[in-house]
Design a protein around this nucleic acid. Structure first.
Length: 594
RNA sequence: GGUCCCAUAGUUCAACGGAUAGAACGAAAGUUUCCUAAACUUUAAAUACAGGUUCGAUUCCUGUUGGGAUCACCA
């Protein structure tokens, strides 16, 4: 049981015994005491004045006396207005430090109901390279998966590759027409970038064609209908669906180039998956489900042969499920994917990390699944995150207003390198060590910048300006860790042993940082409940900041009292552990020197 | 037009209905004979507007204004 729970239980007992309140546990919530007041936990008594029938001051005093008497961990209290501030005994914190400093399980909260969770993220299209939007998606998905694991859930990370459809045919057609057999090797390009080049090429040629057709007197619609390029692409899609050998062969070849490119990007980003699924393998199941729904009269067929779900009774619109030519749409595929995924993993919860622009899509998906009789539709959770916007607005691949993932990571590395040089941090390092460090620092800056923001909120990215290396940033936390490691190395060189100190007079700064470290498990738990790595990121910043103040104000190795040195080293060691573990949940590595 | 989301210092982000709304960047001023100055200290600076609920509202409700998303035989 955590100390919060112990105190809360005693508050419930106190309220009942003193005032006959008939209170229960979930009505009582403890909060952290604000910094400017004395105390560690605060209980607000205002809501209980009705049952105590006494003034706020008296009510709080009575309860305070009761708690000090019945809770060994609480040494004293004070009352300000209706706020009862409870002071935890110093010994509690010194013992907490002794018991958890070397505990590798520390930070992972207790879990009474572990779940089977499948989390999907990334979900790229194979016709273009990954960009900043994918980076947010990947980092969020990966980090949330780690956070859920830290809360003892069984997590499967899956990537659903959108490997088929008209968009893929566009790059295939462009490569076939104008590629002259170009390969990633011959072009000296990453495979995904090469394919992306042809995708853009198609779009440019298509636009030019439309312009010419319009100049020759056609309306916009007529031009679209008469575009030979688009018609060719559609023919290619049909051939693909019919299983034409040559088309399939081309498709496989170009996709394999993209996968090689993706794989390199994922690796550099530090992202991985337990399983990869392909839409080309699930869309047929979706079609079957639609047929079943037709038989059950859950869906209906229009005169032109298209199949629809009528969701107007539920406040949504009518939704197309099969085109009049019988081919499937996005929703059809997703229905198949959902059923397949549920059957394959026996999931209690299926998380989809997908942008908030698709909220409507997921509302529809859940509703249609329910109409088909799948009760588990409620276990689908759309982890809906905000878009990353540029100063010029939304990112659009075809218009070239994207921040490419590979370029961005390279820029981060270069910035870290320049910075390292100007601070003379790299002077004493070997070349490969410096490279490794700059990669670590550059990535940390990028990842932290993205993950510290609440996932639900959209965020603004200003190239050359957004990603900082000072202040509330990844490198700041890395620096704090490196500083502690340096301290510990020095201690080892001086043959100083870190002994367990069970009782020790404490300075305010020491107490502050211990109190903060003590909160780690509940922070990890809260991050899981909110599915928000930002909770962890902001906590780690607080820890690092608190430690730097401690480090600045209080001598550690320069102290003369052996007990105090030991105690402070132990605090430092523990801080380093929490920083390292926490950063690992964000997918950020921490160096031992920088 | 229908539905949904958002609005906090100059800027980017915080704040389970609780106390004097926190940080960072940027601006101004300081701290290195001493454990890493990628650090620390100090100053100035914000809840879009109007109502309501509450002992108490940045947070909940209603309206106004301003942004964004979505409602495709696109994915």
């Amino acid at each position: 049981m955590t100390i919060n729970q112990i105190i809360e239980n005693n508050i419930v007992k106190g309220l009942n015994e003193l005032f006959g309140a008939e209170a229960t546990g979930n009505q009582v919530a403890l909060q952290k005491t604000k910094k400017e007041f004395e105390g560690d936990f605060t209980f607000v008594v205002f809501p209980w004045l009705r049952v105590s029938k006494k003034s706020p001051q008296i009510t709080a005093q009575l309860l305070g006396d009761y708690l000090v008497q019945h809770t060994p961990e609480i040494s004293s209290y004070n009352v300000i207005q209706g706020f009862l501030n409870l002071v935890v005994d110093n010994t509690y914190f010194t013992q907490f430090l002794c018991h958890n400093c070397q505990n590798i399980e520390f930070g992972f909260p207790e879990q009474t109901a572990p779940k089977n969770i499948v989390i999907e993220y990334s979900s790229p299209n194979t016709n273009k390279p990954l960009h900043l939007g994918h980076i947010r998606n990947n980092l969020l998905g990966w980090s949330v998966a780690e956070i859920l694991k830290a809360n003892h859930h069984h997590v499967t990370k899956v990537n659903l590759v959108n490997d088929r459809g008209i968009h893929i045919c566009k790059s295939m057609l462009a490569w076939k027409k104008w590629g002259n057999g170009e390969t990633p090797e011959s072009a000296g390009m990453k495979g995904d970038h090469l394919i992306g080049k042809y995708y853009v090429m198609f779009d440019q040629a298509y636009k030019k064609e439309l312009e010419q057709l319009q100049q020759s007197g056609m309306t916009n619609e007529e031009a679209i209908a008469h575009s030979s390029l688009m018609n060719e692409a559609h023919r290619m899609l049909q051939m693909w669906e019919e299983g034409d050998v040559e088309t399939r062969h081309l498709w496989e070849k170009l996709n394999s180039w993209t996968y090689q490119g993706f794989s390199a990007t994922y690796q550099r980003l530090g992202i991985d998956f337990d399983d990869t699924l392909y839409e080309s393998k699930t869309y047929l199941l979706g079609k079957q489900l639609v047929e079943t729904g037709l038989e059950k009269s859950v869906f209906y067929r229009k005169e032109d042969g298209s199949v629809w779900a009528d969701l107007t009774a539920d406040g949504l619109d009518e939704k197309l499920l099969l085109r009049s030519d019988g081919t499937s749409v996005y929703m059809t595929q997703d229905l198949g994917t959902a059923v397949m995924r549920h059957d394959k993993y026996h999931a209690d919860m299926m998380i989809y990390v997908v942008g908030n622009e698709q909220e409507y899509h997921f509302d529809v998906l859940k509703l249609v699944l329910k109409k088909l009789g799948y009760e588990w539709a409620n276990s689908i959770y759309h982890l809906s995150y905000g878009m990353v916007e540029l100063p010029c607005g939304k990112m659009k691949s075809r218009e070239g207003t994207v921040v490419d993932a590979d370029d961005l990571m390279e820029e981060m590395y270069e910035t870290a390198y320049k910075m390292g040089c100007s601070l003379s941090k790299l002077d004493t390092m070997k070349a490969d060590e410096a490279t490794c460090l700059c990669n670590m620092v550059g990535l940390a800056a990028l990842k932290y910048f993205i993950l510290k923001v609440d996932p639900k909120k959209k965020m603004l990215f200003v190239p050359e300006e957004s990603v900082d290396f000072n202040g509330n940033t990844g490198p700041f936390i890395q620096y704090t860790h490196a500083r502690i490691q340096s301290l510990l190395r020095k201690a080892e060189n001086q043959k100083i042993e870190i002994k367990k100190v069970e009782h020790c007079a404490m300075l305010d700064k020491e107490r502050d940082i211990l109190k903060l470290l003590h909160q780690c498990p509940e922070v990890v738990q809260q991050a899981a409940e909110n599915m928000s790595p930002a909770v962890i990121a902001n906590y780690l910043y607080d820890v690092a900041k608190e430690f730097n103040q401690f480090y600045q104000d209080i001598p550690i190795l320069r102290e003369t009292d052996v007990e105090k040195i030991s105690f402070r080293l132990q605090i430092s060691l523990f801080t380093a552990c929490v920083l390292k573990k926490g950063m690992a949940l964000l997918g950020i590595q921490v160096p031992d020197r920088m």
